[in-house]
Simulated assay, not measured.
Amino acid sequence: MRKSNLNLELFAADIPLVDGIIESITLLPDQAKVYFRTENGAAAVFIFEQTAGVWEKRAAGQEIGGMITQPIHLVQPHIRESLLADIETGELDQETLDSLSVYSFLNSWSEQPLLEIAAIEMKIDK
């Protein structure tokens, strides 16, 4: 039985997320790319622009059960603390921090985050 998460997304644009697989993750300066394959075999690339942080728990090869997108003030404390530390070191400014959302790909069984990305925007390339 699926827990009720207010912001649980089962689709990103018209890409079904449930039972899809994260194939790989590529990190570039200010950008992250998540290569994804749907349950039916269709490929998509999630492109995260102006990426400020990535937290990954062996996500490649894992099946996901959906995605949650949250504004920065609602995310887990470890993410907020990491980004606040980046402000203190000058790697991030407050205006950028306030513009971030955190995109969390969830494990299909435990519904715990496998991959969390703090970024300004997400685009999808099919």
Rank of each mutant, 00 (worst) to 15 (best):
M1T: 11
M1A: 11
M1N: 12
R2H: 10
K3W: 09
K3C: 09
S4D: 08
L6M: 05
N7R: 13
N7Q: 06
N7S: 11
E9P: 03
L10D: 00
L10I: 03
F11I: 02
A12H: 04
I15L: 01
I15N: 08
I15T: 12
V18A: 07
V18K: 04
D19P: 05
D19Y: 05
D19T: 06
G20F: 00
I21W: 00
I22T: 04
S24T: 11
S24R: 14
I25L: 13
I25F: 07
T26L: 10
T26A: 11
L27R: 11
L27P: 07
P29Q: 08
P29L: 07
D30F: 12
Q31Y: 06
Q31P: 07
V34R: 00
Y35S: 02
Y35D: 07
Y35W: 12
R37M: 12
R37G: 03
T38N: 08
E39H: 08
N40R: 15
N40K: 11
G41C: 02
G41Y: 00
A42D: 15
A42S: 14
A43V: 12
V45S: 07
I47P: 01
F48L: 06
E49D: 15
A52V: 06
G53V: 01
G53P: 00
V54T: 12
W55R: 04
E56V: 10
E56K: 08
E56M: 12
K57R: 14
R58T: 09
A59Q: 10
A59D: 03
A60G: 08
A60H: 09
Q62K: 15
E63M: 13
E63L: 04
I64M: 00
G65V: 07
G66Q: 00
M67P: 09
M67A: 14
I68Y: 02
T69G: 10
Q70K: 10
H73F: 12
L74V: 03
V75S: 09
Q76L: 09
P77E: 06
P77W: 08
H78A: 11
R80K: 13
R80Q: 14
E81M: 14
S82N: 15
A85K: 15
A85V: 07
A85E: 13
D86V: 08
D86L: 15
E88I: 10
E88Y: 06
D93K: 10
E95Q: 08
E95R: 14
T96P: 07
T96Y: 04
T96D: 12
T96A: 12
L97H: 10
D98L: 08
L100T: 03
L100N: 03
Y103A: 12
Y103V: 06
Y103C: 08
S104L: 13
S104F: 01
S104Y: 04
S104C: 11
F105D: 08
F105H: 01
L106N: 01
L106T: 00
N107M: 07
N107L: 11
S108K: 11
S108H: 15
W109Y: 12
S110D: 02
S110Q: 06
S110F: 04
E111F: 15
L114F: 01
E116R: 13
E116H: 06
I117V: 15
I117T: 05
I117C: 09
A118H: 07
A119H: 11
I120C: 03
I120Y: 11
E121Y: 03
E121T: 02
M122V: 12
K123I: 05
I124W: 07
I124V: 05
I124P: 01
K126R: 13
